[in-house]
Simulated scan of single mutants.
Amino acid sequence: MHDDPAECRCVICHDYGDRHEADALDLRTLEHVLGHGWSVVTVPPDEEGPGFAYTIGLWHSFRTPEVAMFGLDIHVMRTCLNTLGQRAAQGRTLSDGQRCTDVIAHHSLALKAVDPRWHRTFFGSAISFYRRPPFPVLEAVWPDREGHYLWQDESGHSYRKSQPWLWLEPAEHPVGVWTTPL
């Protein structure tokens, strides 16, 4: 935990006087952050697009960025994010450009800093917890079967659409399932 509550404006560090209005997800998130240091929010796939998951509380508890994953089974993503949360709890740094092994079978995840302009699109529950963006978020990008990442020329066309490219500004992101045409 950080020592100076003034540096964090989350619902744990600052009393906004509205905890009685919290819904079940907010209360579960609070319970997990207080008990474990973080929580994982999962958004299942639906008719609009693939599922995704992200952490809430890593920034509050360990001063390491929150982490998000996209396009895999939500249970797989939850497991991966909890593994990364455990690393943060052990004092291991999570940072932009880092490759993380032993998180997903047979490959490493690449961590990329998310442009803060994506926060309102994907991280609404985290905004409710922190009460304002921006807070740092890393996208955990998984490779294709051959170990290529989205930005590598060797990766296939359909794989390149499997995850958003949140390190890009929204205006630079290709239009697709992860974006809304402007």
Rank of each mutant, 00 (worst) to 15 (best):
Ser155Asn: 03
Met77Cys: 06
Val67Ser: 12
Asp144Tyr: 14
His106Ser: 09
Asp26Val: 07
Ile127His: 06
Arg9Ser: 14
Ala53Gly: 07
Ala24Arg: 07
Pro116Glu: 07
Asn82Ser: 15
Val114Lys: 09
Ala22Glu: 05
Val114Ile: 15
Val177Arg: 12
Tyr130Met: 03
Thr180Pro: 00
Lys112Leu: 07
Arg19Ala: 15
His75Ile: 11
His20Leu: 09
Ser125Phe: 14
Glu66Ser: 09
Thr55Arg: 05
His60Ser: 09
His119Phe: 01
Gly91Ile: 00
His75Asp: 13
Ile12Ala: 01
Gln152Glu: 15
Trp118Gln: 10
Arg87Tyr: 12
Ser162Pro: 02
Glu66Val: 02
Arg160Lys: 14
Ala140Asp: 01
His157Phe: 10
Glu169Tyr: 10
Gln163Asn: 12
Arg78Gln: 14
Asp153Met: 05
Arg19Asp: 11
Gly156Ile: 03
Asp15Asn: 11
Val114Trp: 10
His20Phe: 08
His157Arg: 13
Pro143Trp: 03
Arg131Gln: 15
Leu168Pro: 11
Tyr54Thr: 10
Ser61Glu: 15
Trp38Asn: 00
Thr180Lys: 09
His173Lys: 03
Val40Pro: 06
Gly49Gln: 09
Gly37Leu: 07
Leu81Phe: 04
Leu72Gln: 13
Tyr159Ile: 05
His148Tyr: 14
Leu111Val: 04
Gln152Trp: 08
Val43Ser: 13
Glu48Asn: 12
His173Pro: 06
Glu139Arg: 04
Val33Pro: 09
